[in-house]
């Protein structure tokens, strides 16, 4: 089953002579339980694609279907509810509210949804323990390492049992080892917890953990490859070479 489908998805910034086509009639689909990575050079439109699929932005043309629902027809409040319940976000920077503890950050989407505080905390604890952060429940973000902060972000993304996880350069701010940890975790969300993941990355090493890679250039899909999804270094090298040809 297709979890995500885009039809002629287009996003243009500005107008007239200064108009920039960030995405140009992109048709993409993501299957349920799939780990898809989107790669491309800077300014190719990969983040824009992710924003549109996540309902963070609205397309200039075309539409996005998420679990069969056309996002372009929804008003802001409905879109917000959809983000809260069906999508989990992991960003490169500023994933967490700095004044809340790890536990409170993870429980946040549930509390926004009106889940009773006790149940929200319980579920948050469970996910943080799965992320190996059982000892850091009451730490604030400035008391956690960058890798630990990203784990908390993944736990928050997972706590609402969403259909789709969207990750925008989740390892961009991390060292190699921490980056591998995060990539493995994302892999685990697919294999062990049955989620669908769409990840934007410029790092072929991280992209190698995906099942499929889509390459973007100048707002268009230019290539697509299937992978084993286990972070194979040879596959990563091949991806790197392919990226070089795209620049």
């Amino acid at each position: 089953m297709k979890i995500v489908q885009t039809e002629n998805l287009t996003r243009i910034y500005g107008s007239g002579e200064t108009a920039v086509i960030a995405l140009d009639h992109v048709n993409l689909s993501v299957n349920e339980g799939e780990f898809l990575a989107v790669m491309g050079p800077s300014g190719c439109g990969k983040s824009t694609l992710l924003h549109l699929i996540g309902g963070l932005d609205r397309p200039t043309e075309g539409r996005v279907l998420l679990a069969g629902q056309d996002l372009t027809q929804l008003d802001d409040d409905t879109l917000t509810l959809l983000r809260r319940r069906k999508i989990g976000f992991v960003f490169q920077f500023f994933n967490l509210i700095p004044v809340l503890t790890a536990l409170e950050n993870v429980a946040l989407p549930l509390l926004l949804d009106g889940v009773p505080a006790k149940e929200a905390r319980q579920r948050a604890v469970e996910w943080l323990e799965r992320m190996g952060l059982g000892e850091r429940l009451h730490h604030r973000p400035d008391q956690l390492s960058a890798g630990q902060q990203q784990r908390v972000a993944i736990a928050r993304a997972m706590v609402t049992e969403p259909a789709l996880i969207l990750a925008d350069e989740p390892t961009g701010n991390l060292d190699t080892r921490a980056g591998d940890d995060i990539a493995n975790l994302l892999r685990q969300t697919v294999n062990q917890w049955g989620r669908t993941v769409l990840m934007v990355t410029h790092d072929p090493r991280i992209a190698a953990y995906a099942d499929r890679i889509v390459f973007l250039k100048d707002g268009r899909i230019v290539d697509e490859t299937l992978l084993t999804g286990n972070g194979d270094q040879q596959e990563a090298q091949a991806l790197h070479e392919r990226m070089e040809t795209l620049r």
């Binding site: 976000f89 500023f94 967490l96 926004l112």
Partner: peptide, 9 residues
């Protein structure tokens, strides 16, 4: 961020 993870206006 709050808006992204589902806080309404």
């Amino acid at each position: 961020l709050l808006r992204a993870i589902g806080a309404t206006r």
